[in-house]
Design a protein around this nucleic acid. Structure first.
Length: 434
RNA sequence: UCCCCGAUAACUCAGUUGGUAGAGUAGGCGACUGUUAAUCGCCCUGUCGCAAGUUCGAGUCUUGCUCGGGGAGCCA
């Protein structure tokens, strides 16, 4: 049988009354005197398999002691309708082949601490909630690609090894690169995307990003996946409109296709549905005024901290764009505000429920002299950016872009407290294995 | 880098004024006619993170170290 003709668990509702053979793993087992139950998983779904005394052959019934959690087995049996379970079917076992034994699987069905779970991440991924979480992550990734490709974006992968320092000379992972001295793991693909818009108009990249910051919070990882998009002839307003449409598209997709995984994770859907409304758009100065009333106080000119973000998210109960920050707290490539030269045309999107900033974006400065001045202020060597400055020398245009932290986005939608669970193998300050 | 908290059975934790450790879960055996974290009975499980100090005596008090958790800053 060809691979694509195999029967898997998700197909079983179509096979009621028929006998099928399925390979998979035992998720759990329970028994009473007359009936024994196996939770059986094959990657496409989870189903309950029954061994019934007097009905199931004795030699199969006698295999019980070997049918331990995470043993791999091939099960043959008749598919029957049943009330319980998401698929509404179960399988009455007539034969079992043991493929691989289970042993004492270290993860039980009870509570475990984060350190223990992360040390066993390679096994933890098999558990029900983790399976649900990565189904959601996968849908988010698919939705991002679908939306952007449907809007004429071209995927232009950016380099991971880079010699140019992106924005922050600190916080970079450094390594030796042949005879050329130090190389760095990319913190952003933005400058490369800016180069690409002149060829393709609208581009994006989506890949791992590395930050050597010694961050120990539930919102930070040393390695995370970032979607970055860059658009020619988009001003700050267009940029925000696009971001809002993209997030709405992803959210609709998750609410359409991920209801079962969201239920497994016990995600309250009300805040997600509320986020289908238009997002709040708040000028930085309005944010300062609002925070003066609702607290915590934000000093005019300072960057927002985590507590400010949480307060704004709680106040509105849906995502909030905070726009046009002070120039001093933002990167050199952001476009100077035409009316207020102390500010830049940027926006961060803050997710509700304490999930913090999930998008950072801006219109880019297209005036080469202003960029040179900003580089000098920041103490960055202009010759390092010579190729980037070429983009302003040859056909410079209005353009904008943004970056989305995938794990933060997934963490918000799935309602995860900590984003370290939202990536298969998290890389943090004190954790490099598995 | 800074602040706070923690480390006791395979896991999650309790452990009183300092007197050599206990529960639940997991595991083993048994019971139970359909279980959903099943339930019930019995049994098993210890370098109390490491090192030093105080003391007749330290899981408990002191110091140092290691590891972990939460938060800040930075950012996505």
């Amino acid at each position: 049988m060809r691979w694509n003709q195999r029967i898997t668990i998700k197909d079983l509702p179509l096979y009621i009354g028929q006998t099928v053979t399925l390979p998979g793993w035992i998720q759990f087992s329970r028994k009473s005197s007359q009936v024994r139950f196996l939770g059986f998983r094959d990657g496409s779904g989870l189903i309950q398999a029954l061994l019934i005394k007097g009905e199931t052959p004795e030699e199969v019934f006698g295999l019980w002691s070997e049918l331990r959690q995470e043993a791999s087995v091939s099960i043959t049996g008749e598919v029957a309708a049943c009330e319980q379970g998401p698929l509404g079917v179960e399988i009455k076992v007539s034969h079992i082949d043991i493929l691989g034994t289970g042993g004492d699987f270290p993860l039980g069905r009870k509570e475990h601490g984060p350190d223990f779970l992360h040390n066993l991440r390679h096994l933890w991924l098999r558990s029900k909630k983790q399976v649900a979480l990565f189904q959601i992550r996968d849908q988010v990734i698919q939705a991002i690609h679908e939306f952007l490709w449907s809007q004429s974006f071209v995927k232009m992968d950016s380099p991971i090894l880079t010699g140019t320092v992106g924005e922050d000379p600190k916080g970079l992972f450094k390594l030796d690169y042949f005879d050329l001295g130090p190389a760095y793991l990319a913190q952003t693909g933005q400058l490369y995307l800016e180069a690409s818009i002149f060829a393709h108009g609208r581009v994006f990249c989506f890949g791992p990003t590395f930050r050597a910051e010694k961050s120990k919070t539930r919102r930070h990882l040393a390695e995370f996946w970032m979607l970055e998009a860059e658009m020619a002839f988009f001003d700050a307003q267009d940029n925000i409109d696009l971001q809002e449409d993209l997030i709405h598209f992803i959210l609709n997709r998750v609410l359409e296709r991920c209801l079962a995984p969201l239920e497994v994770l016990e995600r309250d859907l009300a805040p997600l549905k509320r986020s289908l409304e238009p997002f709040v758009r708040l000028d930085y100065k309005e944010a300062v005024k609002l925070l003066a009333q609702i607290g915590p106080l934000l000093v005019d000119g300072d960057d927002l901290g985590a507590t400010h973000e949480t307060a704004l998210g709680e106040h509105f109960g849906k995502p909030v764009f905070v726009m046009d920050y002070p120039k001093a707290v933002k990167a050199f490539y952001m476009k100077e505000h035409p009316e207020e030269p102390t500010r830049v045309k940027c926006a961060d999107l803050i997710a509700p429920e304490g999930h913090g900033e999930i998008i950072g974006g801006s219109q880019r400065e297209e005036d080469i002299d202003k960029i040179l001045a900003r580089l000098a202020e920041a103490g960055l060597a202009p010759e390092t950016y010579d190729w980037y400055l070429d983009l302003r020398r040859y056909g410079s245009v209005v353009h904008s872009g943004f970056g989305i932290g995938l794990e933060r986005l997934v963490g918000w939608m799935a309602g995860m407290h900590h984003i370290r669970e939202c990536i298969p193998f998290p890389r943090m300050m004190e954790r490099l294995t598995p």
